[in-house]
Amino acid sequence: MIKFDGVYVALVTPFKENYEVDYERLGELCDWLIEQGAQGLVPGGSLGEYATFSFEERTKITETVLERVAGRVPVVIGTGAPSTQLAVHWATHAKEKGAAGIMALPPINYHPTEREVEAHYEALNEVGIPIIAYNNPRDYPTDLTPSMLARLAQLENVVAVKEFSGDIRRVHDILEQSDLEVMIGVDDLALEGPLMGATGWISGVPNALPKQGVELFRLAREGRLEEAMPLYRSQLELFHYDAGPQLVQAIKYMMELAGFPVGPTRPPRLPLSATEYEGIRKAFEKAVASVN
Score class of each variant (00 low, 15 high):
S290L: 02
Y110T: 00
M103G: 00
I168V: 08
T265L: 09
I251Q: 10
L195I: 00
W201M: 13
E126H: 14
Q177A: 08
T145L: 06
Q39R: 15
E63D: 13
S54C: 08
H172M: 08
V214M: 01
F217L: 02
E227D: 07
I131Y: 12
S83C: 02
Y23K: 13
M229N: 08
V171I: 06
K252W: 12
I202V: 02
P268F: 06
T142D: 05
L29M: 12
S273Q: 10
E114T: 04
T13M: 07
P267R: 06
R266K: 12
I108D: 04
P245N: 09
E49G: 11
Y277R: 14
I34N: 13
Q36P: 03
R169E: 05
R218C: 00
L236A: 04
R170K: 10
Y50L: 13
L219D: 03
G80F: 08
A228W: 10
Y241V: 11
L175C: 07
D139N: 11
P137N: 05
R68A: 02
E35R: 14
I102G: 03
D179G: 12
L29E: 10
V12K: 05
P245I: 13
L231F: 10
L33H: 08
E116S: 05
A150P: 02
G200V: 00
E28W: 15
L66T: 01
L47Y: 06
L209F: 11
L219F: 03
P106M: 06
A133L: 05
R169A: 03
G45S: 07
L225H: 08
R68I: 08
M254V: 02
P146H: 06
L272H: 07
W90K: 09
G197R: 12
G213N: 13
A104C: 05
F239G: 09
V12F: 11
G37I: 06
V76P: 15
Y121Q: 03
T113F: 01
A250R: 12
K95N: 08
E35N: 12
F55N: 02
A150R: 07
I168D: 11
K211C: 02
A208E: 10
F55I: 01
A38V: 11
V73P: 06
E276W: 11
T64W: 09
G185H: 09
G6W: 15
A70N: 08
V214Y: 14
G48D: 09
E56P: 00
Y19T: 01
V214T: 04
L144E: 02
F4A: 09
Q246P: 04
G80L: 11
E126Q: 12
L152P: 04
Q39H: 14
L152M: 02
G44S: 09
T13G: 01
V248P: 03
E256N: 07
V171E: 07
T62G: 12
D5K: 13
L191C: 09
R58W: 04
L11S: 04
I202S: 03
A87M: 03
L155C: 05
E181P: 08
H93F: 07
G200W: 15
E17W: 04
Y241I: 11
I2M: 15
M255T: 00
P261D: 01
M255C: 04
T145M: 06
L152A: 03
A258S: 05
V171P: 13
